[in-house]
Simulated assay, not measured.
Amino acid sequence: MSKKTLIIGASTDPARYAFLAANRLLNHGHEIELIGRDTGNIGNKEIQTSKPNLDGIDTVTMYVSPKHQPEYYDYIVSLKPKRVIFNPGTENTEFEDLLAKNNIEPLEACTLVMLSTGQY
């Protein structure tokens, strides 16, 4: 089943995990939305540098450090995703608690591993 996924920290750099995750999500048939510091495209999707109005987001996967996450707290909660994946290095207890209070599942995991093991 396809899960519309928002990648925060998207990058066009092929060495970045966010780039790999975007491509693997597409290869697994998931629709993606992208937010990053710089514009560019991954597949046919443009990286947004703002916080666009999005509907139907199932999963948000984080690729930004905890110190840069507070600017996204309200935005992500407003999207009402089912879950937020905190990839290695992005774990943030404060944000995870806020998500849980808003009935959004915080998950400390790796999107790439989840995809490769069929747990996504």
Rank of each mutant, 00 (worst) to 15 (best):
68 H>W: 08
62 M>F: 08
54 L>Y: 08
25 L>I: 14
49 T>C: 07
24 R>V: 09
79 L>S: 03
73 Y>I: 01
40 G>Q: 07
105 E>N: 05
52 P>A: 14
33 E>T: 11
119 Q>E: 11
73 Y>F: 13
119 Q>R: 03
5 T>C: 00
5 T>W: 01
7 I>G: 00
17 Y>K: 10
88 P>N: 12
107 L>K: 02
69 Q>L: 12
72 Y>V: 04
42 I>F: 15
26 L>R: 05
108 E>W: 10
6 L>K: 06
89 G>E: 14
91 E>H: 02
101 K>I: 04
6 L>P: 09
109 A>S: 14
59 T>G: 00
115 L>V: 10
71 E>Y: 06
1 M>N: 15
50 S>Q: 14
119 Q>S: 05
62 M>T: 10
53 N>E: 10
103 N>I: 10
34 L>C: 05
69 Q>V: 04
95 F>L: 06
64 V>F: 00
19 F>Y: 15
15 A>N: 11
46 E>N: 11
101 K>A: 13
120 Y>W: 15
108 E>G: 06
19 F>R: 08
51 K>Q: 12
52 P>S: 14
45 K>L: 06
108 E>Y: 07
37 R>I: 07
4 K>S: 13
30 H>R: 04
25 L>V: 14
97 D>F: 12
114 M>V: 12
81 P>S: 10
105 E>A: 15
23 N>Y: 12
58 D>W: 12
96 E>C: 01
1 M>R: 07
16 R>Y: 04
38 D>I: 08
64 V>N: 00
109 A>R: 13
83 R>Q: 14
102 N>W: 10
38 D>R: 15
85 I>F: 01
93 T>Q: 12
105 E>D: 04
103 N>M: 12
73 Y>W: 15
106 P>L: 01
51 K>N: 14
59 T>E: 09
102 N>Y: 10
12 T>F: 00
58 D>S: 00
10 A>T: 00
107 L>E: 05
35 I>Y: 01
37 R>H: 10
38 D>N: 14
113 V>W: 00
10 A>R: 02
67 K>H: 10
37 R>P: 03
41 N>W: 07
66 P>D: 03
62 M>C: 13
22 A>P: 01
60 V>K: 13
65 S>M: 14
102 N>V: 02
78 S>C: 09
43 G>N: 10
71 E>P: 04
4 K>D: 07
56 G>K: 13
41 N>T: 13
88 P>W: 01
81 P>Q: 14
69 Q>E: 15
38 D>G: 08
101 K>Y: 07
104 I>N: 03
23 N>G: 02
23 N>C: 01
14 P>S: 03
94 E>Y: 03
19 F>L: 12
17 Y>W: 11
32 I>F: 06
55 D>A: 06
29 G>H: 05
20 L>C: 08
75 Y>C: 10
81 P>N: 11
16 R>A: 11
33 E>L: 05
17 Y>R: 05
50 S>M: 09
93 T>V: 13
97 D>W: 11
38 D>A: 15
115 L>T: 08
63 Y>M: 08
79 L>V: 07
110 C>M: 09
54 L>S: 02
32 I>N: 05
77 V>N: 10
57 I>D: 07
3 K>W: 06
75 Y>S: 02
93 T>A: 09
99 L>W: 07
44 N>Q: 15
91 E>Y: 10
4 K>N: 13
99 L>F: 13
94 E>T: 09
119 Q>Y: 04
20 L>Q: 06
56 G>N: 13
